[in-house]
Design a binder for these strands. Sequence first.
DNA 1: CTGAAAGCGCTAACAC
DNA 2: GTGTTAGCGCTTTCAG
Lengths: 342, 342
Amino acid sequence: MKPKRPSIKDIAANLNVSVTTVSFVLNGKGPEMRISEEVIQKILNYAKEINYTPNQLAQSLRTGKSNVIVFMVEDISNPFFARLARIIEVTAYKKGYKVIFCSNENDDRHTEELLQVFRDQKVTGYIIIPSAGAKKQIMALLEEDVPMILFDRYFPELETNYVVIDNENATYKATKHLIGNGYRNIGFVTIASKQTQMMDRLKGYSKAVKEAKFQSRVLELPFVDPLVGEGLMRNFFDANPELDAVFFATNYLTQRGLLVMREHFPGKLNEWGIMTFDDNEFFHIHTPSISAVAQPLEEIGNKLMEIMLELLKGEKKTVHQVVLKAELRERDSSRSKHASSI
Amino acid sequence: MKPKRPSIKDIAANLNVSVTTVSFVLNGKGPEMRISEEVIQKILNYAKEINYTPNQLAQSLRTGKSNVIVFMVEDISNPFFARLARIIEVTAYKKGYKVIFCSNENDDRHTEELLQVFRDQKVTGYIIIPSAGAKKQIMALLEEDVPMILFDRYFPELETNYVVIDNENATYKATKHLIGNGYRNIGFVTIASKQTQMMDRLKGYSKAVKEAKFQSRVLELPFVDPLVGEGLMRNFFDANPELDAVFFATNYLTQRGLLVMREHFPGKLNEWGIMTFDDNEFFHIHTPSISAVAQPLEEIGNKLMEIMLELLKGEKKTVHQVVLKAELRERDSSRSKHASSI
DNA sequence: CTGAAAGCGCTAACAC
DNA sequence: GTGTTAGCGCTTTCAG
């Protein structure tokens, strides 16, 4: 029933060779160690026959590498991260790595606790969305010299690998697009955060608005209960009756915002220009369909794994800092509604 | 820089006790082994002082348990699974377990490969959405007597733990709801699958339709490329002009279906009754808002972990088979549009 | 070319 | 009450 899985020792015993030989052969060091072709074949065949697989635990304990990659995001249930997770997962498994996902809830303490759990646990590599105040923990990892890539955001003062998108430029362009379509009172709904990606998005918006000599109208939501956020958005819309467009700085804000509009300002849905950062299929089928700045998910995922695999080889020590472009997807919500004003 | 993390041996050396004593104390067996209170405190304090954490790898190698729970779903990027993953994750980490997520793409070979990877890897427990033909692999796991819970679907012939919802009844009620609101030609869009959850949903629909003496109109999509699916849906809608409602059997079908309707039958969006299985926030903000059969995510997640923790304690051998109720969320898309026909 | 043996960090019989 | 010790399965140095 439980035949106990074969170990390297069993192979050695059955084949009348030593475990060393078996180990060498199985690790492909046969030729290097000048083990006879005959023995190599014998071992390989037998291993295949009994369907031998090494005990990774023991292997890890011995080598100090666990073949586990940690993928830490804010919240794995956010579709953006879930989709990315999927891409990472596929590549990683293909290369023999396992992926552990975890959500840090954008909370520093949580980040620290999680890293503490993985720390010295011989986790092989980290792909991390750092929470705002996680600089210290990231520095600690840096010092340990373990493969690590940040993404979505980064710490400009730190020499880390990262993959991000050009948030400022993407937001700038999207705002210009709204302006070009005749909107002049564009509200920007974001979260109060010092993180690079949010700062950059705000910068892009501000720049475009300033250039057009329009007034900047920003709502910075504290990172709180969604319901509170909804109330604040409602107040914001009420307090700024002259708004003719809104730009939501991230997907869950859009989701919340659309809900608020639907319930309290239904007329505005088709009247205002609407733009969102982070795309997904539902924005496409929403009425009106929502124009979006779409992050190149596949590209981000591939790039992350490409860098990770590179780091895992442990060769070169160059720092990889990649900035990808986002794509503006124009849909109904940002079309010109002022035919005369173009 | 890399002070090398302290081992149990270091503690023993520094405190002039043996590793056994340390091991016992650290594992809470101090009292049981009648080790002096004084020594216990000394060890505990020192361990805390140097911030000792056990090397899980070694621990696992020795005990044969890895504290890793595998959570295998069809596709982690499906919001339903991602949300569930989040719930599982929180509970598991709290209890000192790590969670490895993976997607089997609803493919038997993939399921087998993944299980092969985890097999004998001392994975502590499995929470699995089995692909249709994975019965053999599930049986193998059953024989190994390792903690395992299926969910979303199960194999009626197998004595496994599972957590599912009452698909048939939920679909039956939702269909009745449509009928009650005056719809008489209700199409049912599902995927061709012998899996319990899909069969049950179809059953519920058929039962309700039959009782009302209406004609059953079912489209079974092969599990293929989404684009092909869209084409088939379009044909189905074209071929059944008398339809006045559609019931989509799972969330991604709804998503596809709404897209098809939007692009090719925009008038029907507000004319037809629409019902979906699996809710999410976007169905709420869609126009019209989509009525949905919502699975109780929190409850499912909590139940799964509750059972898992029970199994991990390894005490009782009762089989847990839990069937939860789904909730019908009535929204605009299924309201009566035939005021006269009620 | 191959084998013996040490040891990764931990647990748990078994001794004393 | 506490210490000694034999492994868990694997890698790798060192000796032949």
